[in-house]
């Protein structure tokens, strides 16, 4: 079977900083991959390269058979790849439901009635249909992030990217977001998740990847990576995180 995401020898520089140093990674349909690593290790940059929010200097990325090279292809890939951000990035001037219907009508060209129906279905799925008419700034962080997930799902993506989805949340709100992600994983969504939530990784992920200094240091099933790491850098990192 052909991988749905093929990352091949990708390099990325920010000025003098070599953020990605020849990263290669294949991800298959239905897989859930968790990426961990110290800050500045390039894990978010790698994630952002997959839907080309970040341009890369060398190498290639194919998503669902489409190479990320032309502007048309990039937009085509972006409609297939949903992204959830650390800071939620909901549109504060639109109601929750409008947040979810906007791209459906503008990009997918659905009519508003269908878009709303779909939006309400997704709000039910993430557990906050009663907030449809509220505005993002009236919601808690956990609710906002769940809306953000619903907004991404409304485009019927084949792949979901999560960039530290729980890092900006108060501790008591983390679980409600992880629950939604877990349900999504169980439905067979292909997911790439940058997160240090070990519980989620153990429960949902097929693979965990440790990145450091722009490279993939080690990859293994999460149970193996967390309990019996082979690489010294993995051991060092885990000893700091698991304390």
């Amino acid at each position: 079977m052909e991988p749905i995401i093929q990352i091949n020898q990708v390099h990325k520089h920010f000025g003098h900083i070599h953020a990605l140093r020849g990263v290669s990674l294949d991800i298959f349909k239905g897989e859930v991959v968790v990426v961990i690593g110290p800050s500045g290790s390039g894990k978010s940059t790698l994630l952002r390269c997959i839907n080309r929010l970040e341009e890369f200097d060398k190498g290639s990325i194919m998503v669902d058979g489409i190479p990320l090279d032309s502007a048309e292809n990039i937009n085509a890939v972006r409609t297939e790849v949903g992204m959830v951000f650390q800071q939620f990035n909901l549109f504060p001037h639109l109601s929750v439901l409008e947040n979810i219907t906007l791209a459906q009508t503008v990009v997918r060209k659905r009519n508003l009635v269908d878009a709303k129906k779909n939006g309400m279905k997704l709000l039910e799925k993430v557990g906050i249909p009663d907030k449809a008419q509220a505005y993002p700034l009236q919601l808690s962080g956990g609710q906002q992030q769940r809306v953000a997930i619903a907004r991404a799902l409304a485009m019927n993506p084949k792949i979901m990217l999560f960039d530290e989805p729980t890092s900006a949340l108060d501790p008591e709100m983390i679980q409600e977001v992880l629950d939604v992600m877990l349900a999504l994983a169980q439905e067979g969504m292909t997911m790439v998740v940058v997160s240090h939530e070990m519980g989620f990784a153990r429960a949902a992920a097929n693979r965990a990847i440790l990145m450091d200094e722009g490279q993939i240091v080690e990859e293994a099933p999460p149970k193996v990576l967390f309990t019996d790491p082979k690489n010294e850098r993995t051991k060092l990192f885990l000893s700091k995180v698991l304390m």
């Binding site: 906007l102 791209a103 485009m155």
Partner: peptide, 20 residues
């Protein structure tokens, strides 16, 4: 992040400007 969220939903630059 607003522009990035709009672009990640598949909007082009002008759609993102216009609606977001």
């Amino acid at each position: 992040g607003q522009m990035e969220a709009a672009r990640s939903l598949g909007m082009n630059y002008f759609q993102a400007m216009r609606f977001v």
